[in-house]
Simulated assay, not measured.
Amino acid sequence: MDPEKIYPRTNDHETVYLKSVVKDPNILVGNFTIYNDFVHDPRQFEKNNVLYHYPINHDKLVIGKFCSIACGAKFLFTSANHTQRSLSTYPFPIFFEEWGLDVQNITSAWDNKGDIIIGNDVWIGYEAVILSGVTIGDGAVIGARTVVTRDVPPYTVVGGVPAKPIRERFSAGTISAMLKIKWWDWPEEKIKQHISDIQAGRIERLQSFGERE
């Protein structure tokens, strides 16, 4: 297994290991996270899917390990948020030359919402939109074309515009156990040994392994 390679499957150039194609130092991606795009070149994720992400804001997109991101998912950052503190939403500071304004005040054109943080083992559906300042917990599922405006708890399925909780994937006890186990942080060979337990939902096997470690 090599999480540094670009294409995880032979003859499939629509799916990439995202960490291998992202160059922006303000986009941080964990091992084995995949992005699939059947419309555009998935290697252009940084250009086509991470929008309004300007260096002047210093905000980050952080994506954990083993996430699955579907075609067309978008991450919208601060500069998409025209300020609502002004009496006008028009971005005068961006056009500082036109209006004789101080270039140092350019970021006052928008309201800074902050970083986007995606946990581990998160599934983001087709053409979902994640807005700046949002944190999505481990194991969450974001439905197709959902617009996420607020934080999503771990192991919660959300959908709609704006996103609303649909259900929790597991019982409270199982969710608590999974957040303690953190299988995505295990060594690769140990994950490989326990893939069948993960797929079959044998959480007691994962718990016993964690205790032995």
Rank of each mutant, 00 (worst) to 15 (best):
T156C: 14
H13A: 03
V39H: 12
V29M: 03
A144D: 09
F92I: 11
G64E: 04
A80K: 03
E211S: 13
P93E: 05
P42I: 08
E14R: 11
I191F: 07
K5A: 11
K190F: 02
D59T: 15
L51G: 09
V148Q: 09
P153Q: 14
L76D: 05
S20E: 09
A177W: 01
G64L: 04
W110C: 13
R205T: 13
I94T: 13
E97K: 14
Q104K: 15
I106C: 03
L101C: 08
V22M: 05
E46I: 10
R9E: 14
K65W: 00
K60S: 07
L28M: 12
S132R: 02
P187A: 08
V103G: 00
P162L: 05
N57K: 11
V141L: 14
P165Y: 10
G30Q: 07
Q44P: 00
K190G: 00
V29I: 14
F75E: 10
L206C: 09
V62A: 11
F95K: 09
T83Q: 06
V16R: 01
V161E: 15
K19H: 02
W123V: 05
F32W: 12
W184L: 00
G143S: 09
G143P: 01
I27A: 09
D102F: 02
Q104N: 15
I181Y: 09
E211H: 07
V21K: 10
T15L: 12
S208E: 15
H53A: 10
A200R: 06
T146M: 06
P154S: 12
I27T: 13
